[in-house]
Amino acid sequence: MLNMTKNKILAILLLLFISSCNQSFDTQEEMNDYIQDEDNGYHYKKTIAGVDYVLQYRPTDLLVKQELGDKINPVQIEKFRQQYNKYMYFNLSMSKNNQELLNGVAQDKAKFGQMVNELAFGMEEKLHVYTPTKDTLDLADFIYPRMYGMSNSTSIMIVYPRDEKYLKQDYLNFVIEDLGLETGDVKFKLNTKALKNEPQLAF
């Protein structure tokens, strides 16, 4: 009877260990499929006032793979993992009528200029990440590439420091202030467990 109890405990511990381990994928395509499934905690989307918002986390290994290209070198893999793992990277995509946000205000020169300025230089004032107790995580960087109407969405790469004390929280609030599109503030609740146990590539 005692052995059966021990075996049950061992089985439960093994299951907990397996479930807490990072998912591993052989290809970039498999990982992309996984992170685009909203149930896995890396992909969030909302539509408000006709504006589509998609926020997607970019795991460290996708950035490592981008650096390495086809030259897989174990030493370089570890070097780049340490470099990129200091931060959390997100892609924020916003569109209206399947077009870039700027297309919707192109006729109004003042509004167009204001939005270009905000997207290129002012997003640190518009993006906020904070804990349930209102502790704020400072934005490390953001990159807005101008697409000049050649894309069907406005995309921004957003970078935050990976601070373990914030990831111990049940979740993090990610807020995008209204960009003059009458959406109000747009909020996502980030799954911190998913961020801590991000998927990896089997290089």
Rank of each mutant, 00 (worst) to 15 (best):
K134C: 08
T133W: 09
R146L: 09
I143N: 15
D141E: 11
K134D: 13
S153F: 05
V159L: 07
M150V: 00
S153Q: 14
S153E: 11
D138F: 15
Y130W: 06
S153A: 15
Y130C: 01
D141F: 13
V159N: 04
L137V: 13
D135Q: 14
M157W: 04
V129L: 08
I143P: 01
L139R: 00
V129P: 08
T133I: 14
T154E: 04
N152G: 02
M157F: 03
M147D: 11
M157D: 10
M147G: 08
M157K: 14
N152E: 09
P132K: 08
M150H: 02
Y160M: 03
P145H: 09
T131G: 10
S155T: 09
D138C: 07
K134I: 10
D135R: 10
M157V: 12
M147F: 09
D141L: 12
P132N: 01
M157T: 12
Y130K: 11
V129H: 05
M147A: 13
M147V: 13
T133Y: 07
D135I: 12
D141M: 12
L137I: 10
D141A: 15
T154G: 01
R146D: 14
T133M: 15
Y148H: 02
T131R: 03
D135G: 10
T136E: 14
K134E: 06
I143G: 06
T133L: 13
P132L: 10
D135V: 11
Y148S: 05
S153C: 06
I158T: 02
S153T: 14
G149D: 01
I158L: 02
S151Y: 06
S153H: 09
T131W: 06
D138S: 15
D138R: 15
A140H: 12
A140F: 09
Y130H: 11
M157G: 15
S155E: 12
D141Q: 08
S155L: 02
P132E: 04
Y148A: 07
T133P: 10
G149Q: 00
T154M: 04
Y160I: 03
Y144D: 03
P132G: 06
G149W: 01
N152C: 08
P132I: 04
D141P: 11
T133Q: 14
Y130Q: 09
D141N: 14
V129Q: 10
V159Q: 11
I158S: 01
S155A: 13
Y160Q: 09
D135F: 13
Y148T: 03
N152W: 05
T133V: 12
T136A: 14
L137W: 08
L139K: 00
L139S: 00
I143F: 10
L137S: 14
P145S: 04
T133R: 12
I143H: 14
P132Y: 07
R146S: 11
M150C: 01
I143C: 06
P145E: 03
A140R: 05
M150E: 00
T154D: 00
N152Y: 05
D138Y: 15
V159T: 09
M150P: 00
T133H: 13
T131C: 07
R146V: 11
